[in-house]
Nucleic acid binder design. Structure first.
Lengths: 243, 243
DNA sequence: TTCTATTTAGGAACAGTGTTCGTGTCAACC
DNA sequence: GGTTGACACGAACACTGTTCCTAAATAGAA
């Protein structure tokens, strides 16, 4: 009745104990080319998401890539939810956090957010898992901690800093999710929404949409990244002098 | 080979033609107590989401509530995706848009966003459908149009207004999604994350998390709505004088 | 060395999911 | 009155996450 994955998961959310990778392994894994480990599962899963998107990430798919059955994964991973957690942990671990600099703190958080954005967009749709991730995941906490340090170094009062970071992370996740969903739509759908097509539709709207019709150009202008940086500037700009 | 739902869906995204509710109906629907219509499906679906949450929303579930099989729905609805689209359209249709007032424009958009928030939170998890909704949905466009009018009345330049509204809507959706997901987690999970529990965990973090440990109180303070209004104030505050 | 305990691997199955096919049934038009 | 076409729907397909239970193989104990 031993349940190692559950315990391992609980431990993951408690303390950053050095992962006790037992040098010696047991079980019928000698016949395998590569043993099934949590890292192998995570790596394989990330590869699938990178290549085919998050909703192609299936326990069966991962198991198949590892040349085994789906049941074999549940010895190392509690859930699909647990796997999701591991994935975004793995991604957050790659984020580089600069030493807080009081003079350039705004550029610094924007750069960290851009790192997260690029990391998430490289794995389309995974931001959904990021939104659902439990807030006590150690790797996401590491990123929060780093961002908090940067904003505090900028002289922002702690309460404002705490909530602002919450808002920033939430926005980054949402941005990536929306972008991924839109890309997936635009990929192989008959009604791909190019900018021209959008402009045409806005122009064809009835008179009850005066502003949308008049400012269709502004509404459809800019790349996704342009909007991303616009919003981040907007949020961070208001942090210095609160009203 | 007639495909009415596809055509209807396409029409929905083109022009707000008055819904041609043919007074006379055909087919073996006389034996039914209530005929299966798009409205009936949407209404039933909303009821399910309100009571049991978005991931209880299943084609089979809706069909069952309508006392029929799942195949019957596909005569009126193209997809589950189409149903999702209809649902958020229905919700957006309920949003009341005030007449733009240049003096109180900030309070006005915040109030509209709060309306959307309450509407989405009443149907837990449906914000996921809102994020995935195609941007040419007429009802969501109506809301965007209303918000655009308010911000423009506030004297914000059109380009800034357009992108800011995009950011606002994105944030509201993400906020609702995260809140719903957290609620679902906290509902019947053994590791429910109460505020005390969170404080304890932050206190137990290793020394590599100095800021998180020191400001655990600020990080865990406030209700979800507090954070919502904080962020909306933050975003709208930066709209007047752009740098 | 032999034996047992523990851990890992995995086949088969269960209860769900979205979606499609084909068939049957009824109402409205010519 | 017969034909047409919209509607309803049972059955099935290809999936999904997850659990049960069995088989294998090693680690430590006797």
């Amino acid at each position: 009745m031993a349940s190692p994955p559950q315990r391992r998961r609980a431990a993951r959310h408690r303390q950053p104990l050095a992962d006790g990778t037992n040098a010696t392994r047991r079980g019928p894994s000698a016949g395998r080319k590569k043993p099934i480990t949590v890292d192998a599962i995570v790596e394989t899963a990330l590869g699938i998401v990178e290549r085919e998107g998050y909703d192609a990430l299936t326990m069966r798919r991962v198991a198949g890539a590892l040349e085994t059955g789906p049941a074999s994964l549940y010895a190392h991973v509690v859930n699909k939810e647990d796997l999701d957690d591991l994935l975004i942990g793995r991604l957050c671990a790659e984020i580089e956090l600069p030493e807080p600099n009081p003079r350039t703190w705004r550029e610094q958080i924007i750069s960290v957010c851009a790192q997260i954005r690029d990391q998430y967009l490289r794995y389309p749709g995974i931001s959904l898992a990021a939104l659902a991730a439990v807030p006590t995941n150690l790797e996401t906490l590491r990123v929060s901690e780093g961002m908090l340090g940067i904003v505090l170094a900028g002289g922002v009062d702690p309460q404002t800093a705490a909530w602002a970071i919450d808002a920033l992370i939430l926005y980054v996740n949402a941005f990536c999710l929306e972008t991924s969903l839109l890309d997936r739509h635009a990929d192989q759908e008959e009604w791909a929404v190019s900018r021209d097509e959008l402009l045409r539709r806005f122009a064809a709207l009835p008179g009850t949409f005066p502003h949308t019709k008049r400012h269709a150009a502004e509404l459809t202008s800019g790349t996704a990244v342009d909007r991303f940086e616009f919003t981040l500037n907007l949020i961070t700009a208001g942090l210095g002098n609160r009203t």
